[in-house]
């Protein structure tokens, strides 16, 4: 079932209509499986567990959903409506799922002043709140703040779990690490189903959560540990849900898919700054359009001695660090 296979696509559409119109009995269900033989094994167990009709229809809708890049505008609207319906059913929250498109002539980059970062982890909490991450079991945080002794640069032996009643701790400095939105991303190359890709114009690496099969190859490929796996259904209460959602970034993730930082795509493509940027109490973070020579980020790249993490891997990160 490759996304490029058009003849199968039309068959599948017909199948979906039939499936949605008729309540599924075991016999007809098995017949249906015969047609879609390749994908039969996985949904069999799941289909048995589904009792409610609404859930059943959304199950089949998800099952026959096209790849994000192949969806027409109408398809997208249908999918967004389904996600909104599902969130309403599961958490009782009215959310709005959108799909902001890249702004022409904009390519995002991030710069972080390590002399200013005080390790207060405000960016981490703001990110979790903004992106509807699972709060505990699994606990997913896109940003890791690594504490290291001053005068060293060894993130792999740094301390992720420092406690701080009054940060910065004596003799320490802090290195926040999140997705580097590489120009040459190793994570997208290993995906066997093309569920993750780098957006061509603004350079954000995104995941189609409905297309991801959860093989975790990308997690192994990423040298920055920026990809996280939903081992269980995200643990998030109704009050904690951020209702401004987007399909490729912060909508509620299903169980068993990868997720990652998208520079708050739903904010940045609407002309705002990422949540971590706005939460920083010291102004260490700078975000902007690298194509605009007058933007702060371009000026930092011109004037400061910036560096990237693991430069030798040729990933070409778009996340720059500097001291001043």
């Amino acid at each position: 079932m490759k996304p490029s296979d058009k003849t199968k696509g039309t068959k599948i559409e017909k199948m979906t209509e039939v499936m949605l119109a008729n309540p599924v009995k075991r016999r007809s269900f098995l017949k249906g499986l015969g047609v879609v033989a390749a994908a039969a094994a996985a949904p069999l167990g799941a289909a048995k567990a589904i009792s409610d009709k609404a859930e059943e229809s959304s199950f089949w809708e998800t099952f026959f959903q096209k790849h994000y890049k192949e969806m027409s505008a109408e398809d997208k609207l249908k999918v967004f409506a389904r996600i909104e319906r599902e969130t309403k059913a599961s958490h009782g929250v009215e959310v709005k799922v959108q799909d902001p498109q890249a702004i022409p002539g904009v390519k995002y980059a991030y710069a972080l002043n390590l002399s200013r970062c005080n390790g207060s982890r405000r960016c981490v909490t703001a990110c979790v709140r903004e992106n509807n991450q699972s709060r505990h079991e699994p606990e997913i945080q896109y940003i890791k703040v690594i504490e290291m002794p001053r005068g060293t640069m060894d993130p792999e032996n740094g301390n992720l779990y420092y406690q701080g009643e009054s940060v910065p701790n004596e003799g320490k400095f802090y290195l926040p690490v999140q997705c580097n939105q590489c120009n040459n991303p190793p994570c997208t190359k290993v995906c066997p189903v093309e569920a993750t890709w780098k957006e061509s114009s603004d350079g954000l690496v995104v995941v189609d959560y409905d297309w991801c099969i959860g093989c975790r190859y990308c997690q192994a490929a990423c040298p920055y540990e920026a990809r996280h796996f939903n081992f269980a259904k995200p643990n998030i209460t109704a009050e904690e849900i951020n209702p401004n959602q987007s399909y490729l970034s912060n909508r509620l993730r299903p169980k068993g898919v990868m997720e990652k930082c998208t520079f708050c795509l739903h904010r940045t493509r609407n002309g705002k700054n990422p949540a971590c940027h706005d939460a920083c109490p010291t102004g260490a973070r700078k975000f902007g359009n690298i194509m605009d020579p007058e933007s702060e980020i371009s000026k930092i790249l011109k004037e400061k001695r910036v560096f990237v993490l693991k430069e030798e891997l040729n990933t070409m990160p778009q996340f720059f660090y500097y001291f001043d």
């Binding site: 405000r122 606990e139 890791k144 992720l160 009643e165 009054s166 940060v167």
Partner: peptide, 13 residues
């Protein structure tokens, strides 16, 4: 000089 502040809770090990 910026005052020292309390850090948010660390991630669970």
């Amino acid at each position: 000089k910026f005052k020292k502040m309390k850090a948010e809770a660390p991630p669970t090990r």
